[in-house]
Simulated assay, not measured.
Amino acid sequence: MSTPRLFTLERDTDITGVSGTGTVADGVVWPDETVSIRWRGARPSTVFWDSLDDAEFVHGHQGATRFVWADTLKEEGTE
């Protein structure tokens, strides 16, 4: 990968009762494959991960939260 790849976290079910549902965070996978996630909401924060797998393991909630890629939306014409 040579350029950063943008995504949002879309939460269908709020298992923890903290983040809510819908678009709960914005993120980027950097060229070195590390990940930054910026949480939305009343108490925003930023977290960093060594890999997308690590971020998904913690924040994916076994499928309750989806990673939606910005470049995929552009390809589909749904910006």
Rank of each mutant, 00 (worst) to 15 (best):
G60Q: 05
G22V: 05
T46S: 09
W49A: 09
V68K: 00
V47E: 10
R11T: 07
A25P: 02
D12G: 15
H59Q: 13
D12Y: 14
D32M: 07
G20F: 06
L9I: 08
W30V: 08
V47S: 11
R43C: 11
S45H: 11
D50R: 13
G22E: 07
S45R: 12
P44V: 07
P44Y: 05
V35G: 00
V24Q: 03
G27Q: 01
T78I: 10
T21G: 07
W49L: 09
S19A: 14
A25D: 03
A42E: 13
D50P: 10
T72F: 09
T72W: 10
L9F: 06
L73K: 02
V68N: 00
V58N: 14
A25E: 01
T46I: 13
Q62K: 15
P31L: 06
E10I: 09
V47P: 02
D71S: 01
V29R: 01
V58P: 05
V24A: 04
W30S: 12
I37T: 02
R5L: 03
W49Y: 15
T21A: 07
R38Y: 11
A42V: 13
T72D: 15
F57P: 10
T34H: 07
T23M: 10
D14I: 09
S19T: 13
D26A: 11
W30D: 12
V58R: 12
R43N: 14
V47I: 11
A64K: 02
A64Y: 03
R43L: 10
G22R: 04
V68C: 01
R40N: 12
W49I: 04
D50W: 07
F7C: 00
A42T: 14
T65V: 15
S36W: 04
G63Y: 03
G20C: 07
T65E: 07
L52S: 03
T3I: 14
E79R: 02
G22M: 05
P31S: 07
L6P: 02
T46G: 12
S19F: 11
R5P: 00
F57A: 15
P44G: 05
G63K: 03
S51W: 05
T16R: 13
P44M: 08
W30H: 15
V35P: 00
L6Q: 10
E33T: 12
A42C: 13
I37Q: 01
W39V: 03
F67I: 10
G27P: 00
S51P: 04
A70F: 00
D32A: 05
T78F: 06
T21I: 13
H61L: 10
E75N: 05
A42K: 14
K74D: 00
G41T: 08
